[in-house]
Amino acid sequence: MSSVAHGEPLLEVVNLSKHFGAVRALNDLSMTVHAGEVVALAGDNGAGKTTLIKAISGVFKPSGGEIRLKGQPVTFATPQEARDKGIETIYQDLALADNLTIGANIFLGREPMTKRFGFLPVLDRKKMADAARKTMALLDFHVSRMDAPVSNFSGGQRQAVAIGRAVYWDAQILIMDEPTAALGVPEQRKVISLIHQLKAQGRGVIFISHNLQDIFAVSDRIVVLRRGVMAGERKIAETTHDEVVKLMIGG
């Protein structure tokens, strides 16, 4: 079945396999993500979702197959290389340094410097705060105190900061691993609206979730994995909860 969007896909995964010894965690899997498209990745535990995103984000080297970015075959030795090419993975917990400001988190590891008194290099906190304010506004999150550590913010707001960092560094593909799992219902809605924003900005999103409500609320397509192979791929508009569940459990 072909994808919803037209034109060249942003990301193509072609016959990707990953074997751990005799265990075939992922077998000949192919999928695409277009610009401005949200693709949900669903499947039971052990279906291969995590293996797939780790292969795409450079954590694992695939055993076979190919990943193409805007038509060009790519290989990643490290997650850093994937990030440099515009593929950003947002994990639930491990994303932020709680004691630092939003700006400092966005720039963590690549802090901008400026000169004081014309010679003394110092961190450019103003640039970090300005960039943070602008980026968060882009996600429709408005922050009044840029000097507060992110530990002051709620789970959904912190999720927004992590997404903001990816947006600031111009990630084209965002992989979000269970972004709503640890959040209360109002916070889940905020994250869903964030994903809508990313889509509107023309980025591709791979969205992993166990929550069918969320998947149906935000995705254009759903790819269901079962035991390392594609169990089915559907446009959200043309499927139902029942059908997806059947694909997941193999009924």
């Binding site: 429709d140 999150f141 913010f153 964030l194 509107a200």
Partner: peptide, 12 residues
């Protein structure tokens, strides 16, 4: 409570 969420998709 320093961040607040606006009416999301409408103001895109």
């Amino acid at each position: 409570m320093t961040i607040s969420d606006t009416n999301p998709p409408a103001s895109t």
